[in-house]
Simulated scan of single mutants.
Amino acid sequence: SLAGAGRKKAALSVSACPPGQAWRVLFAAASTGGAYNSGSHGAYGRLAAWQSLAALAGVADGAGAAEIEARAAECAWFGFDARTDWFEQVAWDIGLAALAPDRRRLAVLAATDTD
């Protein structure tokens, strides 16, 4: 997704974001879907968003919401975007990264919905 990013014609932007913003991005994508589907809706959308948040934060499968929330709060969160051929610059582009509290693990999620 970032091939060629940082070059003159492929600007890269990275900004810190709170975990709540990362959650909103994940929930919006999971619950409403992309351009050509209607997503998972309510509870299933929340489940998918929690699973994504947990994976990015480095929480083991099957962890409860409280554990996921606590670990997510400890991570440093970033949103990213790039002017590359991969990112379509539409509402369904997602670029999130979570840096573990010990700064030794970086998890990245990039998604797009395109024709």
Rank of each mutant, 00 (worst) to 15 (best):
S38N: 10
G6P: 08
A54Q: 05
G45Q: 06
A63Q: 14
R103T: 10
W92M: 09
S15R: 12
G58L: 14
A54G: 02
A48T: 15
S31R: 04
A49K: 13
P18V: 10
L109S: 14
P101D: 06
L12Y: 03
F87P: 15
S40P: 00
K9R: 15
G34P: 11
S15Q: 15
A65Q: 12
A82P: 09
S38A: 13
G79L: 05
S31N: 02
A30T: 07
F78A: 03
A16N: 12
D93Q: 12
A111W: 01
S1T: 14
A63C: 01
R103F: 13
A107S: 14
A29P: 01
W23V: 03
R7T: 03
L53F: 03
A22F: 03
P19S: 07
G58N: 15
P18T: 06
A22S: 07
N37T: 02
A3P: 08
G6Y: 00
E67L: 04
G95L: 04
R46G: 09
T32R: 03
A35V: 03
T114G: 10
A91Q: 12
D102G: 14
W92L: 11
A30C: 10
S13K: 07
T84G: 13
G42A: 13
G20A: 04
A100G: 11
D115F: 14
L96G: 08
C17P: 01
